[in-house]
Design a protein around this nucleic acid. Sequence first.
DNA 1: GATGAAACCTAACCTTT
DNA 2: AAAGGTTAGGTTTCATC
Lengths: 145, 145
Amino acid sequence: MDSLDHRILDRLRLNARAGYGDIGNVVGLSASAVKRRVDRLVADGVIQGFTIKVDPTIEDRGTEAWVEVYCRGTVSPDELRTLLENVPEVVDAGTVTGSADAIVHLRSKDIASLEEALDRVRLAPHVDHTRSAIVMSRLVSREQR
Amino acid sequence: MDSLDHRILDRLRLNARAGYGDIGNVVGLSASAVKRRVDRLVADGVIQGFTIKVDPTIEDRGTEAWVEVYCRGTVSPDELRTLLENVPEVVDAGTVTGSADAIVHLRSKDIASLEEALDRVRLAPHVDHTRSAIVMSRLVSREQR
DNA sequence: GATGAAACCTAACCTTT
DNA sequence: AAAGGTTAGGTTTCATC
């Protein structure tokens, strides 16, 4: 992982379909050299995949909320994972420090379907209660770039 | 946006470098027809870009936290945005319903640098106090990256 | 880094509905 | 007209040197 690798990652982040030759022109390598590095970055797990960014509203994911989940007693992360993986609206979740057991990021079509998804989280075993914050306006969005 | 478009998006989400011919074999179209649809999806803003998923630890973003931001008085979303955009560790943020003014998702190298970033948020004008939850274990990760 | 064959992208043209 | 298929060219990928 030298500076050339980082610059190649930057180019691919901007355009994952850029040709090896084009990337090479920017970073100062031949197409073959770039391909070898990209292949190695994939093999090493540095590049975990090539994807697209899709407008969330197109796929009924324009409404979002962050939810703190509070459980009764002690619940293993595995139990929580199983529960949350069964709710497709959950896009991101983790166990956290502090009073809540987990924080869950939900994405859905509208408030109604968001509430429906939240209910599925809330009515699961072990879950005591939740504390929700519905996103009104997005301020920063650098998760996908 | 018909079902073919959705299936093409699914294929590209799995592998943004898949060939048009390969995608066509799966969805039942010729390579040209797939290319025309992809070009249209890009032109219409449905596909917002082609990117890579990079292992967060490689780029010093392995430690994360969710932070509720509470402000004094009334603060416009624009002021909050300006503030948060100047902290590179902020990967995601939005104004929310409930008692907090905003929720901020931070990613950094380790706890120490996370705390440093949090301080930059906390010491900004208008910010009264924050309430943080550091992520211990990731449960679900379906965010498009 | 260079080479060459195979695979792919792309645009123009044709067919179908 | 709108959408898909076919073809032909130029370019890119990829294994090998």
